[in-house]
Design a binder for these strands. Structure first.
Lengths: 344, 344
DNA sequence: TTGTATGCGTTATCAA
DNA sequence: TTGATAACGCATACAA
């Protein structure tokens, strides 16, 4: 590969002039700029990214920290990753994947201290995530995808779970539903302080209470079977429930299967609304699932934008961004059955 | 951050001795090695990745080339990416994502020539993929995830579609099915030379013909609706079909919905076997889908291993790897209905 | 077994 | 407007 040295020789200028023509931090006359451009074209010159990084102390590499999560990353995670990588590309950055989940953060610290990345995107954030302290200590700029318990001083992009739940309940109550149950992620995820589980649970409780409605919540693992079992339990303990708000794709499909098997019609006997999901998943079900789709693409874009803003010191971007899920009404939500229907 | 210089000073040795202690390419006495180690511990020293790359002319960075595909990457793509990133990590490499799909390869070439990556993993390979020539020209080692038409001289890891189709047909014919239809990806993907579509189609035709069975193939877009329409058409044109072999998750769910709506029982009236899928997707359906799962995790691991072997010149690894999908029998495949059942 | 010195390909400082 | 030249932090050939 041709180097800057070669370009300088061919163009008959000094090496530094070539550099300045490239970076633009110093004026270069139109004439010499043209000569340099011609030399670069002729040689097919490309700046060496590594040498550039070493000299400028900026790698233009962003690291994505994601704990290799046991339940596997969700479908929207792929959208998120793709979107983040694309945004980085457009802005002249590279996205590297760091699938580390060391409890003590040893490996994460080592990676950070090698100076490969200019900043980090933190995924699967828990309410008391220890990586925040680590990143502060190492001095690496970062943006959370998610939020800790008290994230006021941090940069983050997250789903607006409060608005999402409110919109979901608005949709259901407008259809006449008053007995609504929440089918959520596992209890383990709740105990671990997993943001979505905690925040959706809290918002559900708050909004239902505000409307004078009773709060019914079921946690279950990410599997269709777990969803079936939870639904069966719900049918026994709360027979008056007419709508299910779910946040657990696999369990949602299991729940619908169980309902159908019990002779329930969807949505006539039971409405199902799946939040933090996606129309693509919704399209797999029959009848087609009404969903509220996670803004994976937007979060990827915003997270990278926020991170680059920190790195480059352009403080124009908002520190905090919250985006609600978008409602996509399909065929699993409908008017609540009339009260006379469920008297014996 | 502490540099090697600092470590050398603190340990009272020369800079190069520290370097050799780290790389191990030159013997270092136990005594000085211990002193160096102590100094490194005290300073919390980490080698600077960029400086190392510049001096050694090896970045330990692998690039993953994936065209931002219109239909979106499949669910197993996420498994693949995660697995590749993890394998890279374990081996001391980093995986960067390059979501580029420029027809002429200009952007890809620029990226490659910047010298950021030691090698490339090529995804979404088409039969006549132009990136192969590009990579050869630039001189970047690469491994295909997929295969071109004539990949004998190339390194690749791919799904063994031939074996997959054979195993699928073995399963179905063992159940007595003889009228089997293939529901595949879109015709557009076939025309574009998309490997899975082409190879599965060819294998299906070959094996069915070998068994003296008629070849029925339907292509449809990646949507449940498209699957429904295709299934409806199939019911009209080929009413004797008793088994559907599908390779198109969304369409498969649509097909099953259509069948149920037409009063068909699964698997009593129609068996459904979804290949190049995953048990996780299969678990979403009711009844639970019999699948053949794509070896995403294995391909990610093998692809990275093969690439690193090329980069490091350890030719021990196989040039070519083909892994068939694994059959996971669930509830949508069963004995073919008896012939007497479909006489009027 | 260890030390010295050069180079990797840029950026950026200091002069002119 | 341009040219030397010193970092950047490490790997490695050459000496000792």
């Amino acid at each position: 590969m041709a180097t800057m040295h070669d370009v300088a020789n061919l163009a008959g200028v000094s090496l530094s002039t070539v550099s300045y023509a490239l970076t633009g931090v110093r004026p270069v006359s139109e004439k010499t700029r043209a000569r340099i451009q011609a030399a670069m074209d002729q040689l097919g010159y490309q700046r060496n990214a590594i040498a550039r990084s070493l000299a400028s102390r900026r790698t233009h590499i962003l690291a994505m920290l994601f704990p290799a999560i046991e339940r596997g990353l969700s479908g929207t995670a792929l959208e998120f990753v793709t979107s983040a990588a694309e945004t980085a590309r457009e802005r002249g950055y590279h996205l590297v994947l760091w699938p580390v989940n060391d409890q003590e953060g040893h490996e994460t610290r080592e990676l950070l201290q090698q100076g490969l990345a200019d900043g980090a995107l933190v995924m699967e954030v828990r309410l008391d995530d220890p990586r925040v302290a680590l990143l502060h200590e190492v001095g690496t700029p970062f943006t959370l995808i998610g939020r800790t318990e008290d994230p006021d001083t941090l940069h983050y992009a997250d789903i607006d779970f409060e608005t999402t739940v409110r919109d979901a309940l608005d949709h259901l109550t407008a259809l006449g539903h008053r007995d609504i149950a929440l089918l959520s992620h596992s209890r383990a995820s709740l105990d671990a302080g997993y943001g979505p589980t905690v925040r959706v649970g809290a918002a559900f409780e708050r909004y239902m209470t505000e409307r004078g409605l009773s709060v019914v919540v079921r946690h279950c693992d990410e599997s269709a079977d777990a969803g079936r079992i939870a639904t069966a339990g719900l049918a026994a303990s709360h027979p008056r429930v007419t709508a299910l708000m779910t946040m657990n794709d696999a369990a949602t499909f299991g729940a619908m299967a169980e309902l159908l098997e019990r002779g329930k019609r969807i949505p006539d006997d039971m409405s199902v609304l799946s939040i933090v999901s996606s129309p693509r998943v919704g399209a797999l079900s029959h009848p087609r699932l009404t969903t509220m789709s996670a803004p994976g693409t937007e979060l990827g874009r915003l997270g990278v934008t926020s991170l680059i803003a920190q790195i480059e010191g352009t403080g124009a971007t908002a520190l905090h961004t919250l985006i609600p899920c978008r409602l996509d009404v399909q065929s699993t939500t409908g008017p609540a059955r009339l009260p006379m229907n469920h008297t014996p």
